[in-house]
């Protein structure tokens, strides 16, 4: 489950960092907005709807589906709105400066949540219905992957890649760079918000400490490790980095040391990331087989 949520986060950040080359380190902020937003929707309205639907004889899984979908989309849209607001300064800022703005944004969101009593503040927000099951996370993963793949191979995706490679040239060739940078932020934030919503409805409990700067860094590590701009790379790296700390449990105290060492080794041996900028595809396997034969 957490694997899937991390996959959504990594692939959505890849849209901003990998495709468009805008270095954002506030992804946990978007996730937090989606998580708290969707939790509030469910707790204040969705639960009532689900109960009403359930009372009318519809099986609970179906009765929950509608409200959950609305909560997830609502959380995603709230995050997308925040993405739009953060995307605006990215018109003027590049590289390190943009990174600092997004870092600030992520922290502001966390501190805001910490100080809003209605969402539990530092005590956290308990009692969210645990509706998100494997099916929902799987659907989210599928949606974000398909979206990214289709975007990457379309004229709009090419416009994003053009901005990453050479913003001046892209602009001179008729790409509205401002519009596309904001678009990347909005879409990336939307999916991060959906991931947050799934996270909330999976754990049933939210706490601001889940959305610290470290979470953003973790997602960046996934994108970089997977290869900037590679969707399948982000997927692989997200799975690997979620499972690795668990697989390393037998080494006990040395767990995080081993984890760090393995990360460093990977980055030294494959600085372009697991996949570089390529994609896993059937064609690649066919080529491999043809080469082997």
């Amino acid at each position: 489950m957490l694997c899937g949520i991390n996959v959504i986060l990594a692939v959505s950040l890849n849209l901003i960092n990998g495709f468009t080359g805008q270095f954002s380190i506030g992804h946990a902020g978007f996730m937090a907005i989606g998580a708290y937003g969707s939790a509030m929707i469910t707790m204040h309205a969705g639960r009532g709807w689900a109960a009403a639907l359930g009372a009318s004889g519809i099986p609970p899984a179906l009765a929950e589906a509608g409200p959950l979908l609305i909560a997830l989309l609502g959380g995603g849209l709230l995050a997308a709105l925040a993405g739009y607001l953060v995307g605006l300064p990215s018109l003027r800022l590049r590289g390190d400066y943009l990174a600092i703005v997004t870092l600030g944004f992520g922290e502001i969101i966390r501190v805001l949540i910490l100080n809003i009593n209605a969402v539990g503040g530092p005590r956290g927000l308990p009692g969210i219905p645990g509706w998100a099951n494997f099916f929902w996370v799987g659907a989210g993963v599928l949606a974000v992957i398909l979206f990214s793949r289709h975007l990457a191979t379309s004229t709009h995706g090419r416009a994003l890649f053009a901005i990453r490679d050479d913003e001046v040239a892209a602009e001179a060739l008729g790409v509205d760079t401002t519009r596309y940078k904001v678009l990347a932020f909005v879409i990336g934030a939307f999916f991060a918000g959906v991931a947050g919503g799934l996270f909330a409805h999976y754990l049933s409990y939210l706490n601001p400490t889940s959305f610290t700067f470290l979470k953003s860094i973790e997602v960046i590590a996934m994108v970089v490790l997977g290869g900037m701009g590679s969707v399948s790379g982000s997927v692989l790296a997200a799975i690997l980095l979620t499972l690795l700390p668990e697989l390393l449990r037998p080494v006990k105290d040395y767990r995080m040391v081993m984890y760090a060492l393995m990360l460093i080794t990977l980055m030294i041996t494959r600085p372009q990331g697991l996949m570089g900028s390529r994609e896993l595809s059937l064609a690649m396997f066919r080529r491999r087989r043809a080469a082997a034969a």
């Binding site: 004229t155 090419r158 416009a159 890649f161 053009a162 990453r164 490679d165 050479d166 040239a169 892209a170 060739l173 008729g174 790409v175 701009g229 900028s277």
Partner: peptide, 15 residues
């Protein structure tokens, strides 16, 4: 656009 193939480079301008 260094990371793209020639055809993509041309396509981007047709965007």
């Amino acid at each position: 656009f260094a990371s793209r193939c020639c055809r993509d480079n041309v396509c981007i301008a047709g965007h």
